[in-house]
């Protein structure tokens, strides 16, 4: 068992490293091979007012005249050793630019995740406890509604209702407490929907199991049944879902930060897109991929330790997405 787990962990770690490196190569190829030439777009843009000497200097510094394969080699070896290169626009190290704005995004992302978990929990609770005729249908349709509203619309509606009408926060002060709260609600709502969908489906599945029928027949009430028996097996797969949501949070931060005027990674991306600052984009996207892969790796490694039903069966490494099977003794292959 111990040995099998270590084997599995080692294999997953190697796989994750390969995926991160390939993601870097992929983004590099996207930004350098697709049409659209940064030299003419950015450097010769009259708005930037670079002199010819400055342009030459930047081309030298970025190695833009080298063949693509050589550029890739330099960039990739830099990435592996932690050197993310220089911003094309400001000639400052990309790593500095990112670390400056990272805390703001981390605050937003973690509070959004907290909002999402609370909301998903409330929806899941409502789906089991509200009367079938009154409220339950509404609560059950919430995830579908949340997934149909664009993130920026949620943000703007919150700003309109709570910022303009109720005056709870000022849009010009995006780092105030209330502005952060509403930004995290805007970002958290679509994420809560996806967590809630899984949670509700799992709860329904548990509640239809034979043991639940037996427990009910013996007089156990809904509340202890929910908290003592349904919640744990239903909530465990949420670990996997939350890990998958990391990508959504990072993508959503781009929009939410723009709507609320916050500084952060998303705002950095937005500025770099407008100015075609490819080294910054390349770095942010590959770091995002790295974070995503790492979080999912951790989730996959922790999962078998949390859920004793999950057994690692040697070589067949399949991701555990479906958690509960219909059989009496569910065994999930990881």
């Amino acid at each position: 068992m111990r040995n099998a787990y270590l084997n599995y962990a080692g294999k997953r770690l190697l796989q994750a490293a390969v995926v991160v490196l390939l993601a870097y190569v992929f983004t590099f190829l996207v930004v350098s091979i697709l049409p659209g030439d940064p030299i003419t777009n950015v450097l010769h843009d009259p708005q930037n007012a670079f002199t010819m000497a400055q342009i030459q200097e930047i081309i030298e510094a970025q190695g833009l005249n080298d063949p693509v394969a050589l550029q890739l080699w330099h960039a990739l070896s830099g990435f592996v050793t932690g050197d993310l290169g220089l911003s094309m626009r400001s000639s400052r190290p990309v790593a500095t630019l990112i670390s400056e704005v990272l805390p703001s995004t981390l605050i937003l992302a973690s509070s959004a995740l907290a909002v999402a978990l609370v909301l998903a929990g409330l929806i899941a609770y409502g789906s089991q406890f509200l009367p079938r005729r009154f409220g339950q249908g509404f609560v059950r349709s919430l995830p579908s509604l949340f997934l149909s509203v664009p993130t920026f619309v949620i943000g703007l509606v919150l700003i309109h209702l709570f910022g303009f009408q109720l005056g709870l926060f000022m849009v010009i002060d995006p780092n105030s407490f209330w502005a952060t709260v509403f930004a995290s609600i805007a970002l958290g709502i679509p994420i809560s929907a996806q967590i809630a969908e899984v949670l509700v489906a799992n709860l329904d599945n548990e509640s239809a199991q034979e043991y639940a029928a037996v427990a009910r027949a013996r007089g156990l009430r809904q509340t202890p049944l929910f908290f003592r028996h349904f919640l744990k097996p239903s909530a465990l797969p949420v670990v996997t879902v939350v890990a998958l949501m990391v990508g959504e949070v990072l993508g959503g931060a781009l929009i939410t930060e723009t709507v609320f005027g916050r500084t952060g990674i998303g705002n950095l991306v937005q500025r770099s897109v407008v100015t075609q600052d490819l080294p910054v984009l390349q770095a942010v996207v590959s770091l995002a991929a790295m974070v995503f892969v790492l979080v999912n790796l951790i989730a996959d490694l922790v999962y078998p330790l949390l859920d004793p039903r999950v057994k690692i069966l040697g070589a067949t490494a399949v991701r555990s997405s479906a958690s509960t099977s219909d059989t009496a003794s569910p065994t999930v292959t990881v």
Partner: peptide
């Protein structure tokens, strides 16, 4: 592996860099 890589890059960011390049 290709699909793993595509899934690893947050999809909205992926769309953003592709549209930036195009």
């Amino acid at each position: 592996r290709l699909v793993d890589v595509l899934l690893a890059i947050p999809s909205f960011l992926l769309a953003v860099i592709v549209v930036t390049a195009l």
